[in-house]
Simulated scan of single mutants.
Amino acid sequence: MSTELNISGMTCGHCQAAVTKALKRVPGVQDAEVDLQTGRATVQGEPDVQALLSAVSEEGYTAQVRQ
């Protein structure tokens, strides 16, 4: 299963790396890819969606589930 997120507030490679690491630490995540240019993240696995949003928020960015 994959979950798509829109991430706001990323401006550089460091931001991208921080969000990627935060998402990968969430239980249930098998892999996470974050695209700085599009502001999108694709998370593989079966994590709790609220945990994903919280992990991004704790790094100082905003995330929303893509519809």
Results as ranks from 00 to 15, higher is better:
Val34Asp: 01
Gln44Tyr: 14
Met10Glu: 08
Gln16Thr: 15
Gly39Pro: 07
Ser54Trp: 06
Thr3Tyr: 09
Val29Ala: 04
Glu46Phe: 06
Leu23Pro: 03
Leu5Thr: 03
Ser57Met: 08
Ser54Phe: 02
Gln37Pro: 01
Ala63Cys: 00
Glu4Phe: 14
Val34Pro: 02
Met10Ile: 13
Tyr61Gln: 01
Leu36Gly: 04
Val26Arg: 03
Glu46Ala: 11
Ser54Val: 12
Gly45Ile: 14
Gly28Asn: 09
Met1Ser: 10
Gly28Glu: 09
Asp48Lys: 11
Ser8Val: 00
Ala17Gln: 13
Cys15His: 13
Pro27Val: 10
Leu53Glu: 07
Met1Asp: 10
Ala55Val: 14
Ser54Thr: 15
Ala22Pro: 11
Glu33Val: 15
Leu52Trp: 03
Val56Glu: 01
Gly9Arg: 01
Gly45Cys: 11
Leu52Met: 04
Pro47Met: 09
Gln67Asn: 11
Ala22Ser: 12
Ala32Val: 14
Arg25Asn: 14
Ser57Ile: 04
Val49Leu: 11
Asn6Ile: 15
Leu52Glu: 03
Gln37Asn: 13
Glu46Ser: 13
Glu46His: 08
Thr3Val: 15
Glu59His: 07
Cys15Trp: 14
His14Gln: 07
Gly28Ser: 04
His14Met: 12
Met10Thr: 10
Val49His: 05
Leu5Ile: 06
Ala51Val: 10
Arg25Trp: 08
Ser2Arg: 14
Glu46Asp: 11
Cys12Gln: 07
Thr11Trp: 04
Thr20Asn: 04
Thr11Ile: 15
Cys15Lys: 07
Cys15Glu: 06
Ala22Arg: 09
Ala55Asn: 03
Ala32Gly: 08
Gly39Ile: 01
Thr42Val: 15
Lys21Met: 11
Gln37Ser: 09
Leu53Ile: 12
Ala63Tyr: 00
Pro47Leu: 08
Thr11Gly: 07
Gly45Tyr: 10
Glu4Ala: 13
Val49Met: 08
Ala32Glu: 09
Thr38Ile: 08
Arg40Phe: 05
Glu59Phe: 06
Ala51Leu: 04
Gly45Arg: 03
Leu5Asp: 01
Ser57Thr: 13
Gly39Arg: 00
His14Trp: 10
Glu58Val: 07
Val26Met: 12
Gly60Tyr: 08
Ala18Glu: 03
Thr11Asp: 05
His14Leu: 04
Val19His: 02
Leu53Cys: 05
Glu33His: 06
Gln37Arg: 14
Val56Tyr: 01
Ala55Lys: 08
Glu58Met: 14
Thr38Val: 10
Gly13Met: 15
Lys24Asn: 10
Cys15Tyr: 09
Lys24Gly: 01
Gln16Met: 13
Ser57Glu: 11
